[in-house]
């Protein structure tokens, strides 16, 4: 890890002033924000980036805590992932979010990692994570995963980069139509989770979010719980625990009289952004809430998948996860 200066501002204004106002040719990363550091410190140790300065967000009191807002919740970006997983309100009313947070990494990392940091973590692609591979994501000229070892890469939305977004929490938040409030030199704005992330083809391929170089997530707003809308998060991992998802599904279903009346679905680790198969959500409406329908809905969700040479397994895996999530919502008291 290269040397850096550490600034610990106590207000948002100070923090924003310490960060670059524009993406310069250095990628705007002569200064970078740090909170829990659970991803950033690994990135710095691999020397993928070597910022001159880190701006610590821990002193900004506006970024912490949980408060109720109407029937919804406002979660401070500095909230620990462990606190998201443990909050009794979240466990009761936003179950998929609690399950997703509980599935993140290990207890040690959940105790230190923050909500905002989880949303802004960098991709896991091994070419990106290797300082020896000057890949597209790091400002190089080629996505090595495309023709290389791509077992963990995207089956949807890829090109020119084929990373998947690794967050467990982002798909769950998108399921609940949550939004983030950000602060920057240009002021404050509110972004839906679906607007926060960007496909590599749609913007600068070296970034995963639309956030500017001096833009910080202040909080996440969870809208009021929707009565009768049951949710769950199902994640496939190579190991039984402490692993990033091979594929994940945040599913929400409302059923009446044995028929699905509403369905929302956000897939994780299959695309560079949380992936919402809208056609599958629409097709589900009116179907019987039973295994035959679940298989059909899952098949629709996987339409348009474009596997690379080594990740074709993600198609049947994700299909199976979707069916498993439906089954869990139907059979378990969630």
């Amino acid at each position: 890890m290269e040397r850096f200066e550490l600034e610990i501002p106590t207000t948002v204004t100070e923090a924003v002033d310490l960060l670059p106002a524009s993406w310069d040719e250095d990628g705007g990363r002569e200064a970078m924000p740090i909170a829990g550091g659970q991803d950033l410190l690994t990135v710095l140790k691999e020397e993928l980036y070597a910022p001159e300065r880190l701006v610590h967000l821990k002193g900004i009191s506006d970024f912490g805590g949980i408060r109720e807002s109407g029937k919804g919740l406002v979660l401070g970006a500095l909230l620990k992932v462990a606190s998201v997983a443990a909050d009794p309100r979240i466990r009761l009313h936003w179950r998929a979010l609690a399950e997703a947070a509980e599935s993140v990494a290990s207890p040690q990392i959940r105790n230190q990692a923050t909500l905002g940091g989880n949303l802004c973590q960098r991709p896991r692609c091994w070419y990106f994570r290797s300082s020896d591979a000057p890949c597209l994501k790091k400002g190089g000229y080629e996505c090595y995963a495309y023709g290389g070892k791509n077992k963990y890469n995207a089956i949807f939305g890829g090109g020119p980069s084929y990373i998947v977004h690794p967050s467990d929490i982002a798909p769950a938040l998108q399921l609940f139509r949550a939004s983030v409030k950000t602060q920057s030199g240009g002021g404050s704005r509110e972004l839906a989770i679906s607007e926060l992330y960007t496909l590599p083809a749609d913007s600068d391929v070296t970034r995963e979010t639309v956030l500017g170089p001096d833009e910080l997530i202040e909080s996440v707003s969870l809208p009021a719980p929707e009565p009768g809308f049951k949710t769950t998060y199902v994640k496939a991992q190579e190991r039984g625990s402490f692993d990033f998802a091979l594929s994940a599904v945040a599913l929400g279903v409302r059923a009446q009289g044995g028929k699905i009346t509403e369905c929302r679905m956000v897939l994780g680790s299959v695309a560079p952004v949380p992936w919402q198969p809208e056609r599958a959500e629409q097709e589900a409406i009116g179907m019987k809430d039973e295994p035959e329908s679940w298989a059909k809905i899952a098949a629709v969700a996987m339409e348009g998948a474009e596997p690379l040479s080594e990740n074709g397994y993600k198609v049947p895996l994700t299909k199976g996860l979707i069916e498993k999530a439906f089954k869990r919502l139907r059979e378990e008291d969630v």
């Binding site: 250095d26 000057p134 597209l136 391929v205």
Partner: peptide
């Protein structure tokens, strides 16, 4: 930001 071993002079459009 520096990336080790990467050229730092003007580069073509990414991709």
């Amino acid at each position: 930001m520096r990336y080790r071993g990467m050229r730092s002079d003007p580069s073509p459009e990414r991709g």
